[in-house]
């Protein structure tokens, strides 16, 4: 893991705040009916995508999930392009066909969010297989939740990745809720990372803390890049909101939500930066204003962008 410069600390903080502001704004525009379908926000979990992606280079790839806005933003997707896709507009990177749940951007190695829980795990493993086959040094990060660890593809993929020493890091964001079901209902263990032992790969558990995630992900990425194989990295992250926007969360006790909010990864990181003179409150406030402006501009850009034409419906089905 490399030491972060002051600039990198600032950039990381800015990315985390950006993800939160984007998600808050999306909740509003979605609830106002501007975006159809479903969206799943990652408020409370912003540390993981930023801390992990700060260890990646542009040609490294990520595979993400239905709760994938943060991953795409942390990998560096332009906010206007991102928003255009979420609004289903023609100038989104997926031509408005993916929306929130299947967002991909090949130019930055964002191999796609996946609407199937666990569906992205073998695909990411295949990308790692290709990286090794082609003898390049690209690392793949596969994000998923603890719910995915119940899928057969989790087992099958981790087994193969370890067997063949593939350059991949499996990042399990364990927010305690598999859709509407708490972990204790569907899993007899507390740490998904325990399962790493059965695949003969390192299993690491870290709290919802930027610095700890950054360090652990750095070790895992370097290990993968050295050709030593995969790591299963579990982050105990917390989901502040429902499974999807509009979920009333009647299945969830109020203190569980309060507990999640109390472990705010952004506030924690902010305190660290303030107390180590890496960021001043006035700088933070200025950053926030800047971010809010750029989010508003992206929303306006998406609103004013054209929808795809019905005549394009069947275009590009086959190469």
């Amino acid at each position: 893991m490399s030491e972060l410069t002051k600039g990198e600390f600032m950039a990381s903080y800015r990315d985390m705040v950006k993800i939160r502001r984007v998600e808050e704004t999306l909740m509003d525009v979605f609830s106002a009916g501007e975006i159809p379908g479903f969206i799943h926000v990652c408020i409370g979990q912003e540390a993981t995508p930023v801390a992990v992606c700060k260890n990646l280079k542009e040609s490294d790839c990520i595979a993400t999930t239905h709760r994938g806005h943060g991953h795409a933003l942390a990998k560096g997707i332009d906010l206007k392009l991102f928003m255009a896709e979420l609004f289903g507009k023609k100038n989104g990177p997926c031509l408005g066909r993916s929306g929130s749940m299947h967002l991909a951007y090949k130019a930055l190695g964002i191999m796609g969010a996946n609407g199937i829980v666990g569906g992205g795990i073998p695909i990411a493993t295949g990308a790692a297989f290709a990286s090794k086959y082609k003898k390049n040094t690209d690392v793949i990060v596969c994000f998923f939740g603890e719910g995915s660890a119940g899928e057969g593809t989790f087992h099958e993929s981790l087994n193969m990745a370890s067997l063949w020493k593939l350059p991949i890091v499996y990042v399990c964001e364990n927010n305690g809720w598999a859709e509407f079901t708490s972990q204790s209902v569907h899993m007899p263990i507390k740490d998904v990372a325990d399962r790493a032992a059965s695949y003969n790969m390192p299993g690491v558990v870290v709290p919802n803390d930027f610095l700890e995630i950054y360090a652990a992900a750095g070790d895992a990425v370097e290990r993968a890049r050295r050709g030593e194989g995969p790591t299963l990295l579990e982050v105990k992250s917390r989901r502040w909101h429902g499974h999807f926007v509009g979920d009333a969360q009647k299945y969830r006790a109020a203190d569980d939500i309060e507990g999640a909010r109390a472990q705010d990864c952004i506030a924690r990181f902010e305190n660290y930066l303030f107390s180590n003179n890496l960021l001043r409150p006035d700088e933070a406030a200025a950053l926030d204003r800047e971010i809010r402006d750029s989010v508003s501009q992206a929303i306006e850009f998406a609103r004013n962008s054209p929808f795809p034409d019905p005549s394009e419906l069947t275009e590009g089905l086959y190469a």
């Binding site: 073998p122 295949g126 990308a127 290709a130 082609k134 087992h155 099958e156 087994n159 193969m160």
Partner: peptide, 21 residues
């Protein structure tokens, strides 16, 4: 040669294909 993991190898092959193999 792969493990007996049809779901895994199918996804793996698809992922390898989108990455140029």
């Amino acid at each position: 040669d792969t493990p007996i993991s049809e779901a895994g190898i199918m996804g793996l092959a698809a992922g390898a294909a989108v990455c140029g193999l």
